[in-house]
Write a protein that binds this DNA or RNA. Structure first.
Lengths: 226, 226
DNA sequence: TACTATTTTTACATACTTGTAACATATTTG
DNA sequence: CAAATATGTTACAAGTATGTAAAAATAGTA
């Protein structure tokens, strides 16, 4: 039986997540703030940590960094819970070192799928210092740098986040709505066509690698080699 | 037609919302307090719930928690209506498990946009990423890719949905009316012969796998291996 | 403040999709 | 066996989704 540590200050949400996790057969530990979360993680090393980014006192980012620095806890996979789309690029990259993230509000199903995926993923390929290579494209998340066939490509924040989102879910079709939620944040109200515009710009800037962003008519976009 | 349950104790507001929702083509159920709201949600599962936070007796937060914990109702998206300002909006709103929130006073336009966004999100969720194999045919729903004996087959949106519908109910005959409802949507007005045309196209594109789509004269179509 | 970079919206072009109708073929029925 | 009925097939006008560029709005900065 796998143990999951939930670090979340909002009691209701923590309770809800615990309830669902237990229903799925996980053992659950909860912590309402960073300090007790750290303590718990060190004392009884869990198989995975769900970490809210917005915590009182020590922020989730800090906690994540601390956990990743200690030998004892560095190998525990961490999934970040965040309300903002804007922070994900920093979070998943080297700076923070989380293994995955879920943007609030998330469905139970979504969360469970992510947890399973992260647990399944081998220890060796944790995302901390991840460099994504797809065809001639190379994304160095730690340096926030992108190259295509050696040539450096300068992207704006939105373009970068959009690319990361597509690249991390390689092959999977993502609807405009999902992209809006993950890149722009849950609170975004606007035209889904905005995504199209950014896709166009991304394709242009990426040059030959831009062809790897495929349109799936009626559904959304996906990224795929060749 | 989508059904929306409005749980709101202020009669005037409830009425106004109902009026606007109906104008947009939704079916509306209303409940003036938590208990009847819960009952209604369980009895006639709606597609979405608009939930006032400030209710007599049981609070909206409680209701939200209860709904999210029950298997039957946990998947219903909930939009919170709250009169309180900034500090509560994010924290209480969707961290309880709700899918979105709107702060009173809200414009009709805003509410409708949120509803649409949340409903869209839900539709995305439903398509789980599984791989269906039937004979030489392979359907990868997450990649939205179809292969027959390794060869990739490009389908249009309608063709794809039609195939999924047949493949998911393997062996079972489905009438043209049922297919129209499932693939084209319940309010589709048109010729049932449209189905035939698409079946033909599907068979052609699928090549040898197309033979697995069988005609059941007088009843409809079914999919069956060999 | 003005200026720049970036993002979003708008508008239009284009390419793809689709429902229908018309005709062909097959099957059932009387 | 012919008529009636059901399904198969094809072509095309109309509809729809996406691509793209340019204007408008916004955010960021000196």
């Amino acid at each position: 039986m796998k143990t999951i540590l939930v670090i979340e200050d909002e009691k209701d949400l923590a309770e809800l997540i615990s309830f669902n996790l237990e229903k799925e057969g996980y053992r659950v530990l909860t912590a309402v703030d960073g300090a007790s979360g750290l303590e718990s993680a060190r004392g009884n090393v869990p198989d995975l940590i769900l970490l809210d980014l917005m915590l009182p006192a020590i922020s989730g980012v800090e906690i994540c960094k601390i956990l990743k620095k200690s030998e004892k806890t560095s190998r525990i996979p961490i999934i970040i819970l965040t309300a903002k789309g804007e922070e994900i690029d920093r979070v998943v990259g080297f700076e923070v070192g989380a293994d995955d993230y879920v943007v609030k509000p998330f469905s139970n199903r979504e969360l469970m799928l992510r947890i399973k995926a992260v647990l399944r993923r081998g220890e060796q390929e944790r995302q901390s210092d991840k460099i994504i290579r797809i065809g001639s494209l190379c994304i160095d998340t730690s340096r926030h740098a992108i190259t295509c066939a050696g040539e450096e490509i300068i992207l704006t924040t939105t373009e970068y986040k959009l690319l990361i989102n597509l690249a991390e879910r390689l092959g999977r079709v993502q609807s405009r709505d999902v992209l809006l939620k993950n890149v722009w944040g849950y609170n975004y109200i606007g035209d889904t066509r905005t995504v199209d515009t950014h896709i166009t710009r991304l394709r242009t800037k990426l040059g030959e690698a831009g062809d790897m962003i495929k349109t799936v008519r009626g559904f959304g976009y996906k990224m795929e080699d060749a």
